[in-house]
């Protein structure tokens, strides 16, 4: 919808999200499709997210070591890296990778289904395509991104442990103790909860862009592309919002 303003787009997306809540929690429930989408969206993203998390943890450790060593604060590296990964880097990097992989694939898939009338065909086949396609995907992204983020955090921290052991020796127990000593619930829970919103945003935006794509195959590409762009932007906005809210709640 190139002619419509940003506001109209935002409004349409919001009403799309509202429709998700109106229709998503009424029968019939597409459980089998939901599980399949969880598998596709969650399990199959794990290798990508895992590699990213591993590199993130390793690089953070190796990069911060020289600076920390200047202050003689090498023993603070686990705390610093742990806080960085769990509070910010894990959620945001995972969400961005996820948006790139899943947001685009949802946008392209639903876009091509729209263009080839598969969505209409579902509707005449006694299936609510919104529930069957949109609700399952949005739920899958919302539920799977937090799991992926936790796993990426764990992998990243393990990579950080390996990175520390590349120069010098640290036991896993000491590393874990160091990381935990720097953490509180105020670090873990907001970071975990915000990933639900990231996942929801990625799912809703990908589905919206695909569900309402038009102009044939060109529209499908546009849907996939703009799904990623908008989702990435919204992730950062949500992150900013999350920082403000957790700050207001006194959890920072």
């Amino acid at each position: 919808m190139p002619d419509e303003s940003l506001l109209a787009e935002t409004g349409a997306m919001t009403s799309f999200a509202g429709r998700f809540f109106r229709e998503g929690f009424r029968p019939r429930y597409e459980v089998a499709e939901l599980l399949h989408q969880c598998y596709v969206v969650g399990y199959q993203s794990l290798p990508m997210v895992g590699i990213t998390g591993f590199i993130m943890g390793m690089v953070l450790t190796l990069q911060s070591r020289p600076t920390m060593a200047q202050f003689g604060a090498e023993s603070w590296i686990p705390v610093m890296v742990g806080l960085t990964i769990i509070r910010e880097m894990g959620p945001i990097i995972t969400a961005l990778i996820f948006a790139g992989k899943i947001g685009s694939s949802i946008g392209a898939e639903l876009g091509s289904m729209r263009v080839t009338e598969q969505i209409d065909a579902m509707e005449v086949s006694g299936t609510n395509p919104f529930k069957y396609l949109v609700v399952t995907r949005v739920l899958a992204t919302t539920l799977m991104l937090p799991v992926l983020t936790v796993l990426a955090d764990a992998i990243g921290l393990y990579a950080s442990y390996l990175g520390l052991n590349m120069r010098g020796t640290t036991t896993l127990a000491l590393f874990a103790n160091n990381v935990l000593s720097g953490l509180s619930f105020g670090d873990v829970l907001p970071a975990f909860i915000k990933t639900y919103f990231f996942g929801f945003a990625i799912g809703v935006i990908g589905c919206y862009k695909g569900y309402f794509s038009d102009k044939g195959t060109e529209g499908v590409g546009q849907a996939a592309n703009s799904a990623v762009v908008v989702a990435s932007l919204v992730i950062f906005l949500l992150d900013l919002l999350a920082v403000q809210i957790t700050g207001l709640m006194g959890l920072n």
Partner: peptide, 24 residues
């Protein structure tokens, strides 16, 4: 696929709950 999905979710939840338990 369901088995893999289940394993994936369980491992993720165990990581999270483990961290929360240790913090607690």
């Amino acid at each position: 696929n369901y088995v893999k999905l289940g394993l994936f979710v369980v491992v993720g939840l165990v990581c999270l709950l483990g961290t929360l338990y240790l913090l607690g």
